[in-house]
Design a protein around this nucleic acid. Structure first.
Length: 815
RNA sequence: GCGAACGUGGCGGAACUGGCAGACGCGCAGGACUUAGGAUCCUGUCCCGCAAGGGGUCCCGGUUCGACUCCGGGCGUUCGCACCA
């Protein structure tokens, strides 16, 4: 009588043994076949690791363990993304200092991460809040600063006048502060930016070469938002053009073909020419409008409103195509951040301009018409904007009339270029990356402001600029970070001239912390360098990265940008950090994504205690393909647990040299192949199903072959690592199952010598017959027709045609 | 509005390039062993039908010997981005 399987004892035993033996610690300096298996490090929330996190980590861990069994030296590190506004806001909410809160949360996460059985190399754990880490985050800032890739400019932030603090966009709900409900307004602050736009072309171009999930690449492509178009200059009319140099309003458009239909212009409220062009009699109205726009928060400015507000400046500009004067308006549907902050409005062929023109009674001139309708000119007023180019030709456009729209885009741009009034340009939607945060909980930006020397980088020998441990870390009404109140820290001697100067008080964005963590992992023990050159050469770029698609854009794009910048500066030899990226799906609970804000998080601890970590891992991986995610219900966990219990019994009964039937032999080898292929494709659910089938066949046949059971244990190891180790030991091994190799299969055995051939009559399956593999058509047809169930449907009818797909199917078409 | 993914039993899901629809598991039903069963084992489980047979992968149409799979048109769900000129 064998003892029943007791997960709690088995799991604790193997966790201890792994730590003691260093099972999960590859030789970082001399690996034979290095494999860097990365998963997205968590933000250590107070609630602890939830089932969604566990799904993600286990999904990646299964892959890492599988690679280990294939003979790779797998490095699977883990760490904590512990700086940032989430941690800080939570600390403020419960009135605790983040510096004390975060270590508690990390300790809890570490405990949970150990329990779920990840193959983590804990020697290389890191936290972004560790000065030994953020020293190098600051160092990276300085490298970019020196290379001219970091710069300062004024930019708008959301400001809550009641809480007297800067808000992130996510903290603004419908134009109001999420905490106090006060109307949020814009403020302009000097902030630091990284020139990610310089890399837009490369970031876009490389996408085609990456082995990444398509959804992720598409998201990045959309985010980068490349559009081709033209910049066109509209001269300002009248005496307000100062001096003799002609003043122009420059616009960006993707539709130069519609130039003849530009009947007015619109400037963003922040546009520098607004004051110049506004006539004295319109000044009061325009200024009021601009003030009102500034009072809106950044979020609701961007909400699409039916209502298109705006105000006429009194100024006119000349349409360079028609020579006609058109009125210049100011409206907040035009954004200063995109293009030139000014547009030529073509109401006939742009929905927003159409809406605006209707509301403010502006002229609408149709300049495109379907080629078939050109004969009938101006068929009355448009009821909506015609925005397509396909099949459209120009009308009301002088000598361009009759030209197809696509051709006109080039022709008109070329014409403008010859006249010096415009040129073809490429615009990107992406903006430079603002890394300044007027907050406490982050790495201070390493800059010192000196009255005589200006902004000075902190010398590298003085890094890190430690985040001081101040008790009152709340943001206040000064508009600058709470760090400014800490005088001892704030005032510092200028590294250039030695005069008393002030530190930069903003901290950097969390995405800068997480933008390079993968580079740090292999080198965590070196305090004199961010990433050791030899280690980096050996382990990077990352072999496989599995993570959530919520980071498809920001984290993954910023990481790629930083790698490119570091490569250009000669610090690393590659520019794409993640060779292979796969996005796992989401765990959904009650129809919604599992998240703290929705309050539907499920903590895995109770399930692990009841069923064991291995059974729970298997349950999560069995829900569906990793890339699809799944719906969490606790009903199904008993299935994988029952399966493990059955395997446990098989291990107890296994005997060496047992008889293996021909059928079982084939199934055994087929399982080895299928399971490997499915894991490689991240179809863990079907890999597990294949193992379950093999177990069912073993039990049906009564076979006790230790050879098969051993292979089964190895194949189970990625999913149920503690369990597999214990079984491996019970089978008489003294080493770790992870030092074993994935079982090989005999390809010749995977395909059996005879096949079950479905037989159809007129496309309906009537029977199936057994024929030799690759049987010729005549033989297969003869066997099939001899089958009574088939004969019945064919008898007395004319066989008009036979479709035979060897080893697949035979179909008789009768008439 | 734009972009992407997707719609298969009571449920999660399977079905390689167009070739046995529903693998595997949950749940459910019946049975065995039991003082007991929420443990274990066995049997059944897409729908209609006693059966032969017929119907069936969101809906309508098409291509094909053959469609969950391909094409056209609807409907619906989820996720991104959202006044990007």
């Amino acid at each position: 009588m064998t003892t029943p399987y007791q997960p709690d004892q088995v799991e604790a035993k193997w966790r201890a043994r792994w730590a003691e033996r260093g099972t999960n610690q590859p030789d970082l300096d001399r690996p034979a076949r290095p494999f860097y298996n990365l998963m997205m490090f968590p933000y250590p929330s107070a609630e602890g690791l939830h089932v969604g996190n566990m799904f993600a980590f286990t999904g990646s861990d299964v892959y890492g363990r599988f690679k280990r069994l294939q003979g790779y030296d797998v490095f699977e590190p883990i760490g904590f993304d512990a700086f940032g506004i989430h941690s800080e806001n939570y600390a403020i909410k419960i009135g605790q200092h983040p510096g004390r809160l975060i270590p508690q949360n990390i300790a809890n996460f570490r405990r949970q991460l150990e329990k779920i059985g990840g193959m983590f190399d804990w020697r290389h754990e890191l936290s972004t809040t560790d000065p030994a880490y953020y020293k190098w985050t600051q160092w990276i800032f300085l490298q970019l600063y020196r290379a001219g890739k970091a710069y300062r400019k004024k930019a708008a932030v959301n400001w809550c006048p009641n809480c007297k603090t800067v808000l992130a966009n996510e903290q603004v709900e419908g134009g109001a502060c999420e905490r106090c409900g006060t109307q949020v307004e814009q403020r302009f602050l000097e902030q630091w930016f990284f020139r990610i736009t310089d890399y837009a072309d490369r970031l876009l171009g490389n996408l085609a070469t990456l082995d990444w999930s398509d959804t992720t690449r598409t998201a990045q492509r959309n985010w980068l938002g490349r559009s081709e178009g033209a910049e066109i200059d509209f001269p300002i009319q009248g005496e307000r053009g100062r001096g003799n140099g002609e003043q122009v309003i420059r616009v960006f458009t993707t539709r130069p073909d519609t130039l003849f239909g530009a009947t007015f212009m619109v400037l963003a409220p922040e546009h520098p020419l607004v004051a110049t062009i506004t006539t004295p009699e319109r000044r009061a109205a325009v200024e009021a409008y601009v003030r009102a726009a500034a009072a809106k928060d950044l979020v609701s400015r961007k909400v699409v409103e039916r209502d298109k507000s705006g105000v006429f400046t009194g100024g006119m500009a000349i349409n360079p195509a028609t020579g006609r004067a058109v009125p210049v308006w100011v409206a907040d549907y035009v954004l200063m951040e995109y293009g030139t902050g000014a547009i030529m409005a073509v109401p006939a062929h742009d929905e927003r301009d159409f809406e605006f023109a209707r509301q403010h009674q502006l002229e609408i001139i149709q300049v495109l018409a379907p080629a078939a309708e050109v004969a009938r000119p101006s068929p009355g007023a448009l009821t909506e904007a015609l925005t397509d180019t396909g099949g459209m030709v120009l009308v009301n456009s002088g000598r361009f009339d009759g030209m197809p729209a696509e051709a006109a885009i080039k022709a008109i741009t070329g014409e403008l270029a010859r006249q010096g009034r415009g040129k073809a340009v490429v615009q990107y939607r992406i903006h430079d990356w603002c890394i300044s945060r007027q907050r406490y909980w982050g790495p201070p930006i390493p800059i010192i402001y000196c009255d005589s020397c200006g902004p000075m980088p902190v010398p590298e020998k003085d890094l890190p600029v430690l985040l001081p441990e101040i008790e009152d870390f709340r943001p206040d009404d000064s508009g600058v970070s709470p760090l400014a109140r800490h005088e001892e820290w704030y005032f510092v001697d200028c590294p250039g001239c030695g005069r008393r100067s002030r530190r930069e008080t903003d901290v950097s964005d969390t995405f800068l912390d997480s933008g390079w963590y993968y580079l740090r992992y292999p080198s965590t023990e070196f305090n004199d360098r961010p990433f050791d050159p030899a280690r980096t050469r050996t382990w990077l770029p990352v072999t496989t990265y599995i993570g959530g698609n919520e980071h498809a854009v920001l984290h993954l794009l910023y990481s790629r940008f930083l790698a490119m910048a570091l490569k250009d500066l000669g610090h690393i030899a590659f520019e794409e950090p993640f060779t292979r990226f796969r996005a796992h799906g989401l765990i959904v609970k009650d129809g919604a994504k599992m998240s703290k804000s929705r309050g539907n998080v499920v903590i895995p601890d109770q399930y692990i205690a009841q069923w064991g970590a291995d059974a729970f891992r298997m349950y999560l991986m069995f829900l569906g393909p990793l890339e699809d995610g799944g719906d969490f219900r606790d009903a199904g966990i008993s299935g994988p647990r029952r399966f493990l219990d059955r395997v446990w019994a098989l291990v107890g009964d296994a005997e060496p040299g047992g008889e293996i039937s021909a059928e079982l032999l084939i199934r055994w080898h087929a399982t080895k192949k299928k399971c490997a292929g499915d894991i490689e494709a991240l179809h863990y659910n079907t890999a597990i199903a294949a193992l379950m089938e093999l177990v069912n066949h073993l039990k049906e046949s009564g076979c006790r072959s230790q050879e098969i059971v051993s292979d089964l244990v190895i194949m189970l190891a990625p999913f149920a690592p503690h369990f597999a180790e214990e079984c491996w030991e019970r089978l008489g091994h003294t080493d770790s199952v992870f030092d074993a190799r994935w079982p090989t299969w005999d390809e010749a055995l995977v395909v059996s010598r005879s096949v079950e051939l479905p037989v159809q009559v007129n496309g309906k399956t009537r029977s199936r017959v057994s024929v030799p593999r690759d049987a010729p058509e005549e033989q297969a047809a003869a066997v099939a027709l001899a089958d009574p169930a088939v004969h019945k449907f064919v008898d007395g009818k004319q066989v008009r045609k036979v479709i035979y797909v060897p080893n697949r199917l035979i179909n008789f078409v009768v008439g």
